[in-house]
Design a protein around this nucleic acid. Structure first.
Lengths: 190, 190
DNA sequence: CATATCATGTAAGAGGTTACATGATTAC
DNA sequence: GTAATCATGTAACCTCTTACATGATATG
């Protein structure tokens, strides 16, 4: 039982849902730390139906095919959720680029960093907004959201403590003094 | 050109190396944010040799097969490293378990959290030790290491701000506080 | 001479991504 | 009627993981 499939079983505890629904639910609730694609959902649903973990109920409007938990599915989920979760898997291409920074032309790395910083800033804003809107339905979701905030905050703080040499760009040109007219591109001021 | 293969090309800039060497180098330098397995290394080396990006030099002791960069390999790497790095991929089973916390028996989630916290504590200690030992050969590696410290610190801080209801749970609570006699209701809220 | 370490690889499969392909219904 | 959205699925491919299999050389 893989975690993606198990998560679908978890969502089905709320009631019958179609593949389409499950994609939406997954994206909204666990998408930030456990990406799930349409392809996977339909594949896992088919596999789990074959295993008797879910059952397609009466078809709805359009081509809607709502699935519901079977007793076997319920217990498969219960078994899965009690197992100790594995370590997190991280793959961070930006750090890879950073590691090979010596092979990058001047300013290029600074550009990469600036782009990613912007991205993380946006994500933090999104999480904060969700927090303030009270979007989390329970303490568990709230804790997961808090993780997002903690993570993005840490990433931003990390960006901001990087030496100017890496973020300020222009190769040997470090620390253009108070007159910052030199670099129009990505090494944006914060 | 995938990032794993490209990284191997990157390492080969330091001089010829065997698959074995490259596994060790990769684990030591990028392993924390870009895991690389033996299997991948040998496969990618074979593939890159077929593409003319690397060439096996004269065999060494034992069955050692040192590879070196070709000019094509050098330029393939140069092309790769200039491309904007993609977004980080994170998969965090603990957060998944947390999200489904309502389906966990009391105390179980607390146990998971405690185990992971210990793990992250150890990693932070390792990174801090590496920093203090001056293990980073250059500013780039130092920045990557700093990321590790920032990340692990944030994770620990997150653990420590979780509501008692989640961490204080039933069974194997870490950090048993002075009032650990009450029956916790970890699985109960809403 | 036995054990640890160095060293290379293959096989099988799981899991994930991207693109392709199709059709039904609703809203304008 | 036409565009947007809902809805399902397939195909191909890439990447990564795990386990298997083998042998050479150092070290004690």
């Amino acid at each position: 039982m893989n975690a993606t499939a198990a998560s679908l079983l978890g969502f089905l505890h709320r009631g019958p849902a179609s593949g389409w629904d499950l994609v939406a639910t997954a994206q909204a609730t666990i998408g930030d730390f456990w990406p799930v694609t349409r392809s996977q959902v339909y594949r896992e649903l088919a596999a789990m139906e074959a295993q008797g973990l879910v059952r397609a109920g009466p078809p709805g409007r359009r081509d809607r095919r709502p699935y519901q938990l079977t007793r076997a599915g319920r217990s498969a989920f219960a078994r899965w959720v009690r197992e100790p979760p594995g370590p997190e898997q991280i793959r961070f291409p930006l750090l890879l680029a950073l590691s090979f920074g010596r092979h990058l032309p001047p300013g290029r790395l600074a550009g990469f960093l600036a782009e990613h910083r912007t991205e993380h800033e946006a994500r933090l804003a999104r999480y904060r907004a969700a927090q303030e809107a009270g979007a989390a339905p329970d303490d568990y979701a709230a804790a997961a959201l808090a993780f997002g905030v903690a993570y993005e905050s840490a990433v931003l703080a990390w960006f901001d403590q990087l030496p100017d040499r890496l973020t300020g760009g222009g190769g040997q040109a470090r620390r253009a003094s108070s007159t910052e007219t030199r670099r129009p591109s990505a090494g944006a001021p914060r």
